Amino acid sequence: MPQNWMRHFELQLLDKNGKGIDLSDFKVSFKIDWFNISSATRIATFTIYNLSKNTVQRILQEEFSSVRIIAGYDGVAPVVNQRQAGVARNVTSADAVGQSGNENFGLIFNGDIRYSMTGRENPTDTYVLIQAADSDNAFISAMSGSTLSAGYTVADMNKAVMKDFSPYGIAEDNSQVTMPPTVFPRGRVLFGMTRDLMDNVANQCRGTWMMVGGVRVMTNSIPDESLAIELNSSTGLIGMPQQTIGQGVNVRCLINPNIHVNSLIRLNQAEVLINQVAIPEGDLRLSNGPFSATVANGNSTINLPVSQSNTASLATDGVYIVRGIMYTGETRGQAWYMDMMCAARDAADLQSSTALNRG
């Protein structure tokens, strides 16, 4: 089992040809938001401190178009670092990223740079702030304008929509999504934002989709339980998971690239205690079962509201599906966490748009 020993971090800025610089040895703070919704892609905001004027100008002049963040733990005893600290090193997109042996690090984000800005935090420290979004160019620019002949299927529609994504470098995932066999008797015009048409495909498949590292990932099933990653104090769990009202179960752990949105985690209930939440007393007084109550008040009637506070479901087997991840990290500080919104398998706690908006 990989060990959480010695943080591993790489920050690479790449140009359109896949060449760029590595800024891993600088002080960097970052925040990445990743949720299981198609209306927004993964967003990363990171701040790099005390770069040279030449490197700052290269970034601000948009020499680089994409960013990659690799994080986790080396899992082995440290070796003498031969790299010169505080120097930007040249890299290419082919540089290895991933886990092997005792290592527990991997790619946690790659995306298109949206904007960059520079500033000064105090009299001695300068910084460059960069925001990037996964597959941002495809997400905001891809348009569709084609037709499907009578007798088309959902698979045909999916193929046509993916064709419109392909000029932006978007590939289709290899997962076997079950698509309905319905044959439509009339033709159809595909016109509009390609991402909206992909929403339609996913809805017909009773699934969800998202962009992950330039790949359209769609799923309409839950991963096999054998793939669940065990979380406890020895494997990176921080504190006690927190049950919430209507927003699943919140779990914090150390950064682990093996955990991603729609994957499974296991909280061994013999070792991990979940801090349960109590429904507010005011809601308990208002609640009267599944229906609102009606009482007489002279010549009028009063409808008592039903409590809208419902605690999130807890898994009896300790297995939860990850619905959202918020990464926070600082290479010279304490923060190195993943805050996850999780739901018991087959629970609908996080499926409503209202719950997602609250999150």
Rank of each mutant, 00 (worst) to 15 (best):
R7T: 07
R7E: 03
R7K: 14
L11E: 05
Q12K: 12
D25N: 09
K27Y: 03
I37Y: 02
A40I: 01
T41F: 10
I43P: 14
T45H: 03
T45I: 13
F46M: 09
Y49W: 14
V56T: 15
R58S: 12
R58M: 09
F64Y: 15
V67P: 00
R68S: 12
I70R: 13
D74L: 14
G75P: 07
P78T: 00
V79C: 02
A85G: 11
G86V: 08
V87T: 11
T92G: 11
S93G: 06
G101I: 01
N102E: 11
I113G: 12
S116Q: 06
M117D: 14
D125N: 15
V128Y: 03
V128E: 03
S135V: 03
S135H: 05
A138C: 08
A138G: 08
F139V: 07
S141F: 06
T147P: 00
A150N: 12
A155K: 13
D156K: 09
K159W: 04
K163R: 08
D164H: 05
F165M: 09
S166Y: 06
Y168F: 15
A171L: 11
E172F: 02
D173H: 04
S175Q: 10
Q176W: 05
V177H: 08
T178G: 12
T182K: 08
R188Q: 12
D196H: 08
L197S: 01
M198F: 02
N203E: 15
Q204D: 11
R206E: 15
G207I: 07
V217A: 06
M218W: 03
T219K: 14
L227V: 04
L231N: 04
N232D: 15
N232M: 04
T244Q: 12
I245T: 06
N250K: 13
N250W: 03
C253W: 05
I255A: 11
I255G: 05
N258G: 15
R266V: 01
R266K: 15
N268K: 04
Q269W: 00
E271K: 10
I274L: 07
I279M: 02
N297D: 14
N297Y: 10
N299I: 04
N299A: 12
I302L: 10
N310A: 07
T311A: 03
A315G: 04
A315L: 00
T316S: 12
T316K: 04
Y320V: 07
M340F: 03
A344C: 05
D349C: 05
L350D: 04
S352P: 02
T354R: 15
